[in-house]
Write a protein that binds this DNA or RNA. Structure first.
Lengths: 348, 348
DNA sequence: ATGTTTCTCGAAAACGTTTTCGAAGCCTAT
DNA sequence: ATAGGCTTCGAAAACGTTTTCGAGAAACAT
């Protein structure tokens, strides 16, 4: 015999009483509660999750869906660990646990999510790598499952937390303009991630504000990898009118860009101003130091966890004043990669 | 009404029949099976996981326990994603799913694992960041739960898959000796990870083979981060007898090491030979190119998944010829950071 | 026609827990 | 002494599924 029944027999009381004692219900004598707790600790009893969640219809678990990638690391990789950490520590405070659900690179993300929803071993979801009009959002909304997206999908009837891509783009343009630049390019992700749209719109808004016309050929799509940064550099150098500055929306491209510029005899940060996106240890050794933005990813995870809690029916009223959407700020860390512009001869 | 009962009523047959039809049991008319499958697809029915696993005592889920870290990324971060990918795609072939269980940085790993074991929503575990005599191994063995460790714990009564740290260390020493070096240092992780012991033992074995005495001050502990690499460099330069070469057991330290050596006027790869550990995009831009080792992490994940499958009672006989332990090889990718040694004047 | 096998299905138990509801005991106020 | 309230506990139902076992029908062999 195992489980709560064994514990009950061992204490010579009913299983109902044991259950109530363990779950801190009110109609239990403090004396017997203490006995039960002690015996449970001794025998190492922990309630079976299947039985519990079958009865309660809840699993006390939330799933964080990510897309694991096959080979080359992208930005997201070392991004996520710190976020997990933040989310998990918030959830734990409410006796919830986080599990990460990695969608393999050879499976369709929507299929995967439907499968996970169907299996029902999580009460709520956090989805990431959000795309514009992401079909997963519609699916979760229809299924009525609490969730929050890390990244905006464009529609606003759901919760999300997202980095301030628009703000960063805008602020970067402002900074470059203030330093004398007008030919400012922007590097955008090649994939359909919505952050590309956001970054672009912030970029265009700032240009407009400064009266600088938008050149479509200055919005360059590139892979979010070291190699992507390298090809970005060559693309940049062969533009009809060579820009004097570039803003990155990814952290991993910086090193490759530096390399390809250097190889072409263009000194990064001097002949070409560069503002990176997220600060990272991988960029810390670049010379000249990359101007970029910093933020605590663990805190971002914490925020994500809190928004999620607000969506859980059991905690809804406790968190009802919490905003359902949150733009996560980043802070400029000035480097030397975007100095005041020297006089330039027109390179048209 | 929901669940299998609704489906049964809709088809006007018993729930037992529905269940058997969905689970491909033999005593079902092919005709009715087709009807059931179709109706299930139409109504979007998927079996509730709690009910199923309560009855079967199995969850068809395996948990991959990692230690999420708070802030600074370590080696492990972008290491894992590819591994997840491999594991998940192997498991999926057997109708199993992978969930990643991130142990937050502010929780004790053993406590966390016991909690996860207790909750029982996974049938088996993969544990990582294995330490020497890891208490988690003993715990899982005692609990009788199938598991495989990514990384050796030292004891051999359990399954593991591990990178060939000893081999890499040995091969690196051989290579450096062949190029004229005798004063060879080694950088080891500061933490209690067992890989440090393995790497050191390979290093010492090779030294012995070449008749080079082992100098304890040449085995340098350092953090597995960019900053760790930086301090490693300064430690290296202030040794009583400066080594002419160093072998790294971590991928992330290389950039920091290059930087600190350069700042001290010691040209990395020329005045100091360097052999890195795992090839990574972050090191690809280093100049001179870092000699290091490469391997497919996705394939490593695949191997990990297969060893795990062999541990599951339901699949044991199908995989019984599979070795329970596996040393995962890495392949040398020659760079220019460890050239033939030039004549040196003794720096003692 | 009868006995025997084969095929298909349904009734019911079982998994381990939580939770409702009523009962028993005790105390207090009348 | 009796009625009522409070405290503490136990019996039993319920969650959704799988699986065992037996029943009935059909097919087959004698």
């Amino acid at each position: 015999m195992k489980g709560i029944r064994a514990l009950a027999r061992h204490l010579d009381i009913s299983i109902g009483t044991v259950s109530k004692a363990l779950n801190n219900r009110f109609d239990i004598n403090p004396e017997t509660r203490k006995r039960v707790l002690q015996a449970a600790a001794e025998l190492g009893y922990v309630a079976n999750q299947s039985g519990r969640s079958l009865r309660q219809g809840t699993t006390r678990t939330v799933g964080f869906v990510i897309e694991s990638n096959q080979a080359s690391p992208t930005d997201s990789d070392n991004f996520f660990m710190a976020v997990f950490d933040g989310v998990q520590s918030v959830l734990r405070g409410h006796h919830l646990d986080l599990v990460v659900l990695p969608c393999a690179s050879d499976e369709d993300p929507v299929d995967y999510l439907t499968r996970m929803v169907g299996r029902g071993f999580v009460d709520a979801f956090i989805i990431s790598a959000t795309r514009k009009k992401d079909p997963r959002v519609a699916m979760l909304l229809k299924a009525g499952i609490p969730f929050v997206a890390l990244g905006r999908s464009g529609e606003d009837q759901h919760c999300w937390v997202d980095l301030d891509f628009e703000g960063v783009a805008e602020q970067s343009v402002d900074r470059l303009v203030a330093r004398g630049h007008t030919d400012i390019a922007v590097a955008l992700p090649a994939t359909g991630l919505n952050l590309g749209n956001l970054f672009l719109s912030g970029y265009r808004r700032a240009l407009k504000r400064h009266g600088i016309p938008y050149r479509p050929d200055y919005a360059i799509r590139s892979e979010s990898s070291d190699r992507g940064g390298y090809t970005l550099g060559t693309t940049l150098l062969f533009l009809e009118r060579r820009p004097s500055a570039i803003i990155l929306s990814y952290e991993l491209v910086a090193a490759g860009l530096y390399r390809s510029l250097s190889e072409a005899g263009v000194r990064p940060g001097r002949d070409m101003a560069i503002i990176g996106f997220r600060e990272s240890s991988q960029n810390r050794h670049l010379s000249p130091h990359l101007t970029s933005y910093s933020t605590s990813l663990r805190d971002l995870g914490t925020a994500l966890g809190e928004v999620l809690l607000s969506q859980l029916p059991s905690l809804a009223e406790h968190y009802k004043d919490l905003p359902r959407q949150k733009v996560w700020p980043l802070e400029l860390v000035p480097g030397e990669s975007d100095p005041q512009m020297r006089k330039r001869k027109d390179a048209s």
